[in-house]
Simulated assay, not measured.
Amino acid sequence: MEELTQEEWVSQLENDDNAVILDVRTDAEVAEGKIPNALHIDIHKGQGFIDEVEALDKNKNYYVYCRSGARSGKACEIMEEMGFDNAYNLLGGMLEWEGDIE
């Protein structure tokens, strides 16, 4: 897992044709707004989270975020254990996000 600042995350994401943005927050948090085009899989779903992540393409690059960066860091660790090579955690999460929100 690589931890990226918002600037690094956005810069790398903009130049990545193989990118997937992954939001691991709760439904209630997502209802308050999310990064555009983000796929939502709540890490609190436990095995449900594992099952949904298992269905994802392991050849993609995943840019993962949550509210503060803690849950997304854990999600990146889980994904790496599952065989995902490229999972990037957004340090500071939505609390520090200054980009677009939908």
Rank of each mutant, 00 (worst) to 15 (best):
E14T: 05
K34C: 12
E3L: 01
D16M: 04
E2S: 12
E29L: 12
C66D: 11
E3N: 12
Q12V: 00
G93C: 01
F49Y: 14
N61M: 09
G92M: 12
L13A: 03
G92S: 02
L90I: 03
I41A: 06
A28L: 12
V53E: 01
G99F: 07
Y65L: 08
Y65M: 01
G73K: 02
V24P: 01
Q6C: 07
R67I: 04
D17F: 05
L22D: 00
E98R: 14
H44A: 10
R25I: 02
Y63L: 02
I21V: 14
Y62F: 15
N61C: 06
G99W: 05
E7G: 00
D85Q: 15
D16K: 01
Y63W: 12
M1C: 03
K45R: 12
E2K: 14
T5V: 06
A70F: 08
S68A: 07
A75M: 07
L95K: 08
D51K: 05
Q6P: 01
E32F: 07
V10C: 00
G48H: 10
Y63I: 01
A31W: 01
I41Q: 04
E80R: 02
L13E: 06
E102I: 07
W97E: 09
G69A: 08
A87T: 14
I101D: 04
I43V: 08
S68T: 14
N89Q: 09
E54V: 04
Y65G: 10
R67Y: 09
E2T: 09
A87W: 01
L95C: 07
N15S: 12
L39A: 06
Y88F: 15
F84W: 07
E98L: 10
T5Q: 04
N61Y: 13
T26F: 14
Y62W: 10
G83V: 05
N18W: 02
Y62M: 07
M94N: 11
E8I: 08
A28T: 15
K58P: 10
L90S: 10
W9L: 02
L4W: 09
W9F: 15
N59F: 08
A31N: 13
F49T: 00
K74V: 07
W9V: 05
D42G: 04
G33L: 12
R67W: 10
T5K: 04
L39M: 14
I41V: 15
D27S: 13
Y63D: 07
A19V: 08
S11H: 11
R25Y: 11
P36E: 06
H44E: 14
Y63T: 04
L39Q: 11
K45T: 11
S68F: 03
H40F: 06
W9R: 01
G99Y: 11
Q6L: 03
Y88R: 03
Q12H: 02
G33S: 14
A70W: 05
N89G: 07
G92E: 04
G83S: 10
L4F: 03
N61R: 11
I21C: 01
N89I: 00
I41E: 01
I21Y: 04
Q12T: 10
